[in-house]
Write a protein that binds this DNA or RNA. Structure first.
Lengths: 241, 241
DNA sequence: CTGCCAAACTGGTCGGACCAGATCTCCGCG
DNA sequence: CGCGGAGATCTGGTCCGACCAGTTTGGCAG
């Protein structure tokens, strides 16, 4: 963390303060000059930090004072920082992230399955097969799953979809993934949807692929939620959620 | 445009240059000092502009020189600017935007329909009914449709979904919507899916609502695509798509 | 108490400067 | 002729101090 530039770390501090709800929406942030003094840096450095907050969508800088934006107007990027705010992360937020991600992957699976050329289709099938046959650890399986998601989005040929995926890329894995000390998801639980997915890809049935993927992710989601809730039953709630 | 701050308009110029493909990915942007001289401003102003490009995800600023990022790593916000780059906008990109938006709304409809409380459900039904019964113009109908989307997302209770929606909010309407001089979409074309949607909401059938919405949007998408392709058959292709 | 004007404050821009790290150049060694 | 490395050069990061033009605020007059 210490290798960051100063404006970066100042922005991070302010960002977390805001996300933690220390400033109410619409409220004015301290002035650049005040913050410069508080952090012991030049005003220009604080300015740089402010720009970051602005582009994150959580602050609105204008003459008269920078103001805190409502969280709904923020950029997707805040999700990552919201997740990092607590450890273990807020289970609800994790679940919402996974839910949204699942939905998008389902969409991508539909479009990608329908539009893939033969090479892309072959690659997809390889990945699904790998996931069934060589699932050493959850971590590894997750890696394959991620690649599969990329393959779907790639094959969809939809740039917008791709950008959404990238915005959602949120290193949720760091917060969310079962660690290795955790027992892996039993193959039995996910084999059925994986086989269905495989068939769908082969038969170019987008709708079916989409449903198979939803089926698959819903299982995983449920496991992660249960684990997090268990870990987190003493966490205090709060923040701008 | 002239009321913008300078760093804003400089950022816009550089942004459009990049999106137009004048700099290849990975290529170095001119230095802050060079650009300051070219634009006749102080270096700090160019720096501010650079920060914007960085947070837009289209440039990577580091010692040694700022570099152009691949478009896939950009923020969702670039879509709006990509659309604005040509007039009429690139039909393919518009279609991709609408496709993603449709899928997204289908997701929201599924979740929102399943989770809405009675007040929210009533509001949804009102909107759908309005859309059937009082469709004076496409513009007006679009307004209702947008409100309906908000209602779904709101009812889903999913913050991540909400942020994606906001990111996708892209004033696509400005580029994409049928103008008033255009004949409105005949009610006959959209009445069936709207009725289906209504029933789905009443019966709390998320899957059905999702499908109804896809059915509805696919019709509209097709119309818009046809219109744009017709308008655009002489446009030159290019840019980082 | 209200309305309005001036003072204080805020962000935007400027000029100029120094640092540390990245990049480039060019010379000398193999 | 090729290659590696040292030094010059360039780049972004930060700082200082200053001025401008809008915003906000405080207090004075009505």
């Amino acid at each position: 963390m210490s290798s960051m530039t100063q404006d970066h770390s100042i922005a991070a501090t302010l960002r977390d303060d805001i996300l933690r709800g220390q400033y109410r929406r619409g409220e004015r942030l301290p002035s650049e000059r005040d913050l410069a003094e508080r952090f012991g840096v030049h005003r220009s450095t604080v300015r740089a930090a402010f720009k970051r907050l602005e582009q994150l969508g959580i602050a609105d800088i204008r003459q008269g004072g920078a103001r805190v934006n409502p969280i709904e107007e923020a950029s997707l990027d805040v999700i990552e920082h919201l997740l990092a705010l607590e450890s273990p992360p807020n289970p609800e937020l994790v679940d919402q992230t996974l839910e949204t991600l699942s939905g998008f992957l389902a969409m991508a699976a539909r479009l990608g399955t329908e539009r893939a050329d033969s090479a892309q289709r072959a690659a997809m099938l390889t990945l699904v097969t790998e996931m069934i046959e060589a699932p050493d650890t959850d971590t590894q399986r997750t890696e394959i799953f991620r690649a599969l998601g990329n393959a779907f989005v790639e094959a969809s040929g939809n740039l917008v979809l791709r950008l959404v995926q990238h915005g959602l890329r949120t290193r949720y894995s760091d917060y969310v993934l079962p660690d290795d000390r955790q027992e892996a998801v039993p193959l039995a639980v996910i084999e059925a949807p994986l086989l269905r997915l495989k068939e769908s890809i082969e038969s170019e049935d987008g709708t079916n692929a989409s449903e198979a993927l939803l089926e698959l992710t819903s299982t995983i989601r449920k496991r992660i939620r249960n684990r997090l809730v268990a870990e987190n039953n003493d966490a205090s709630r709060g923040g701008p959620l």
